[in-house]
């Protein structure tokens, strides 16, 4: 299935969707969004690309293969619980650090966000893993 319209659309949608998915991921803590939705979007970005250009070509363009991405996500999620252990708290207690406090660029980073990043990758990875295997059939 070769569709020029879909190919052009996919080529431009992919970076936009990736950026959007990261934004959705980051704002998830205070506004609607989060790792799960972001992960679905990230996965969708590549699935759209795969529909336009085929699975093989898409896999060449991904840094991590879907299965590794899933594993990476799980690893990040698991590791996000460790800092709490180091400071003597129960596993997965949230720990926060604020950068540039009270300025326009206030940036709050914490282990729950890291955990969400893990969910983000794991969901995107598993989505691509399933979709690519089925689409390749």
């Amino acid at each position: 299935m070769e569709s020029v319209i879909l190919q052009i659309a996919a080529r431009h949608m992919r970076p936009l969707l990736i950026i959007l998915s990261v934004i959705v991921l980051y704002r998830g803590h205070n506004e609607p969004g989060g790792g799960f939705i972001g992960g679905l979007m990230l996965g969708a970005a590549y699935i759209l690309y795969a529909m336009a250009f085929g699975v093989g070509k898409t896999q060449n363009r991904i840094l991590f293969s879907p299965i590794n991405l899933t594993a990476l996500g799980l690893l990040i999620a698991l590791l996000s619980g460790v800092p709490a252990l180091l400071s003597g708290m129960p596993f997965m207690t949230g720990e926060w650090v604020t950068f540039f406090a009270n300025s326009a660029f206030e940036l709050k980073l914490g282990t729950p966000l890291l955990f969400d990043v893990g969910v983000f990758f794991a969901v995107a990875g598993m989505l691509m893993l399933v979709m690519f295997s089925i689409m390749e059939e």
């Binding site: 998830g28 803590h29 205070n30 506004e31 609607p32 969004g33 989060g34 790792g35 799960f36 899933t70 594993a71 996500g73 799980l74 999620a77 698991l78 996000s80 619980g81 596993f91 997965m92 949230g94 926060w96 709050k108 914490g110 729950p112 966000l113 955990f115 969400d116 893990g118 969910v119 794991a122 969901v123 990875g125 598993m126």
Partner: peptide, 27 residues
Amino acid sequence: AFGRNIVNVILVDFRALDTLGEITVIA
């Protein structure tokens, strides 16, 4: 938990262990 999105806070903080289990299952 410093988050205004309660759904998300539950998922990634209060009940993070459950979520970890869930993403393990989907993986």
